[in-house]
Simulated assay, not measured.
Amino acid sequence: MCRGPTFFRKTRSMGEMTGPFRASEAVSNGWVSEHYVRTKCIRLMPDVYMPKGMRLTARRKAMAVATWSRRRLTLCGFSAAAMWGTKWIDDSEQAECISACQLRAPSGVIIRRDRLGPGDVWRERGFPVTSPVRTAFDLGRRLTMSRAVAVVDALYQTRLLRKTELADYADAHPSMRGIRQLRNVIEFSDEGAQSPQETRTRLVILDAGLPRPSTQVTIFDAANRFVAQVDLCWPQWRVVVEYDGDDHLTRRRQAKDMTRVNALGDLGWRVIKVKAELLADPRKRAIVIEQIRGALRQAGAPV
């Protein structure tokens, strides 16, 4: 599948580049001068440069590898996920690609020897990239459980992957290494999750043996007027769990949150707030879990 033209182009007849580029090609075509390459750019890998001051994201790392390989290698793993527009990928993640032959990897690049089947390779901006389902399949097998669920949840948000599609792909490759973990990743993944923190909160809840919460549920009042969209909840027991990030620290956001929580309370919903430090500390995490368990029990849940 092809989704657009190649990434970099000159911005004028002799000027600046907009991303990773092959210096020899850019100079010979008159896109930039050698002086520009020497003074205005940083070297990423052999013959591949990027303008100084440009953030080296996971996506740009992927483009750099594709440019270095002259589009002969297939981007995979986090590089493929970044190319498909997956959010929340850390810039520190190494670039990954697949080669059918032995190659010496540039610094910071992982070259894998995986076998790819028909339909496993698509093209994004002219670069060969593992398909969204193959990308999720690989990351789900190789990462730790919690990281794997978070990245699979994020891949769902690209709208290029469905949970059923990933499950079917796993069923078609039952002997692949890591397939047992992948099946667990698929089970615990959720197409509604909208942040890694929300995923982490959900996994903590499930690990404690509590019922699986619904995600991104819209709540209306008796007059069918919108009240809130909540991260995690059990509609049958009217219990909500919300993760509060740093963006909730402003006075304006705190006032908005208070109004929202009060409105939910008026409708009989119990709201339990969670923050990163509560999840990170085992003792505090246990207290939060007991608060959730208690709220569910009071509402009639068999916990």
Rank of each mutant, 00 (worst) to 15 (best):
C2R: 15
G4F: 03
G4I: 06
F7A: 15
F7Q: 15
R12K: 14
E16N: 15
E16I: 14
E25F: 00
V27H: 05
R43E: 14
M45Y: 06
V48L: 00
V48Q: 06
Y49R: 09
G53E: 14
T57R: 11
K61G: 06
A62Q: 05
M63S: 08
T67M: 09
T67S: 08
S69C: 10
R72P: 03
A80M: 00
W84D: 02
T86G: 08
W88K: 08
D90Y: 12
S92F: 00
S92I: 12
S92Y: 10
Q94S: 14
I98E: 05
S99M: 10
A100V: 07
C101E: 13
C101S: 13
Q102T: 15
R104I: 12
V109Q: 11
I111W: 00
R112F: 10
R113E: 05
R113N: 12
D114M: 07
L116F: 01
D120E: 13
R123M: 09
E124Q: 09
V129A: 06
V133Y: 00
L139N: 02
L139E: 04
R147A: 15
D153R: 07
A154K: 10
L155R: 01
Y156A: 05
L160C: 11
R162H: 11
T164S: 13
P174N: 00
S175D: 14
S175I: 00
Q181S: 00
L182K: 03
S189N: 00
S189G: 04
A193W: 12
L203N: 15
I205K: 15
L206P: 07
G209N: 07
G209Y: 09
R212I: 02
A222M: 11
N224A: 15
N224Q: 14
R225P: 06
V227P: 01
A228Q: 09
C233S: 11
C233H: 12
W234I: 05
V239D: 03
V240G: 09
V241N: 01
E242N: 02
T250S: 10
R253C: 01
R260L: 13
R260S: 08
V261C: 11
G268P: 01
I272A: 07
K273F: 08
K273E: 00
V274K: 04
K275R: 15
A276W: 05
E277D: 06
L279H: 04
A280T: 03
P282R: 00
P282E: 00
P282G: 08
R285N: 15
I287P: 01
V288D: 12
R293Y: 09
A295V: 14
P302T: 12
